[in-house]
Amino acid sequence: MANIDTIITGIRLANPLMLASGILDENGYTMKKILEAGASAVVTKSIGRVERTGYRPPIIAEIPGGLLNAVGLANPGIDNFDHEVEIALQAGKPIIGSIFGGTPDDFLYVGKKMEQYGASALELNLSCPHVLGVGSEVGSDPELVEEIIGELKKKIKIPLWAKLSPNVTDILKIAEAAQKADAFVLINTVRGMAIDIYARRPVLSNAYGGLSGRAIKNVGIRYVYQIRKETGKPIIGVGGIETHEDAIEYIMAGATALEIGTGVYSRGKGIFSEINKGLSSFMESEGFSSINDMVGVAVQ
């Protein structure tokens, strides 16, 4: 058997596949179930400082090649999230706390609490494209990104993963602003929208949404490759991973670990163990003895 474990920012993962933020990770029991189904870690739903109900439904649309969503950062607020992390931790695997905010102070408040709750790392959602004042607004402002990460780096001990948005003109500029982060997570959803032609209006209540799934895989591959090549930093690849071939493509583009979101919807919770099986047999037949041997091999 090929060895499929991997280490990202010092965190040992039994396999490269984690659950991505925002998909089945609001209730601790669900996170625990996903870990039992073979995910090596889960990234929580993005949590902010205060409770938010998010947009009213429709918040999601099934489209060819994936999903379009505008959930609106619904979250219970960090002070109400301790119990969910506690339940998820019962699975004995790493929990990564995804956090968002509008200011360095917000990030610090939420990040500190996540650290106390037992998160192994923080994933900074700098890229959520659909709430004014946070998300992309934050992630497309290099100075603010630098300030947030600088502040967190001083006061948080666990690793910081900066999740970047593909919805910027120059992603490299943002990556440079975020260079104090321990790793980059690429990519968040791509801006999109859908119109119902019989209702003659946008399907999502927020009109604009974020595209995920197969439709964005090749956008993700491109950014992972570019950022790996330009920065050499550890990368967590996410966007449209549904098969072991997709996973390997991301690893060869430079990802050390991966996250799956929409694939859980299209393939079910069994997707983690299925991909791991395929990954292991590919590595055996192609003569790779570890994930690390494959990371970035395609980068020229």
Binding site: L24, E26, N27, K33, I59, L67, T262, V264, Y265
Partner: peptide
Amino acid sequence: MKCGIGVCDSCSMDGLQ
């Protein structure tokens, strides 16, 4: 139920949707 398709986790009970 916010999504109806096993994504949002709002309807979950015991890890089941």
